[in-house]
């Protein structure tokens, strides 16, 4: 790819947690076909499924009339994922610390923490058109 090349695609997913594997398949196929290294593919796929699941469950509250948009942009230097829901928004800062001893055996509540751990940058924004936008970045040239 040239220094200014950009490649962007997107997937629209219904608000059904049972469809989460579509996000994984979409990311894996797109990244592998563009020669992204395996270690980055797995990190992106894990983070994307966490964020899409949160968008379905906490953003859209499993409302079947709402959708989640997962978009992927690849440049020479990084992969960027945007996850957009149509919900009322939620405060990621209110999630209990999954590393606290009393939370270690909880079956849920690690998604945002894992995404933050695997990605270089995770940002939450309110979508002007409604809903929440999560933007995550991962360098293709790790230090």
């Amino acid at each position: 790819m040239s220094g200014t090349s950009r490649d962007s695609i997107e997937l629209v997913i219904p608000s059904d947690p049972g469809r989460i594997s579509e996000a994984d398949d979409f990311l894996e196929t797109a990244l592998r076909s563009r020669g992204v290294p395996d270690a980055i593919v797995s990190d992106m796929a894990i983070a994307a499924t966490e964020l899409v699941n949160n968008a379905i469950v906490h953003g859209n509250k499993r409302d079947a009339t709402k959708t989640v948009i997962l978009s992927l942009q690849i440049t020479d230097s990084e992969v960027v994922i945007r996850v957009v829901d149509q919900g009322e928004g939620f405060d990621p800062g209110q999630v209990p610390d999954p590393l606290a001893q009393e939370n270690l055996l909880r079956e849920v509540g690690r998604g945002i923490f894992i995404a933050r751990s695997l990605m270089d940058d995770v940002r939450y924004e309110r979508n002007p058109g409604g809903g929440m936008v999560v933007i995550v970045r991962k360098s293709l040239n790790p230090a």
Binding site: I20, S42, A45, I46, T49, E50, N53, L105, R106, E107, V108, G109, R110, G111, I114
Partner: peptide
């Protein structure tokens, strides 16, 4: 297992507990 996310970890925890 190639990889898992927090859902997979939650399933392991559910089985363990």
């Amino acid at each position: 297992v190639d990889w898992m996310n927090s859902t997979g970890l939650g399933i392991l925890i559910s089985g363990l507990t």
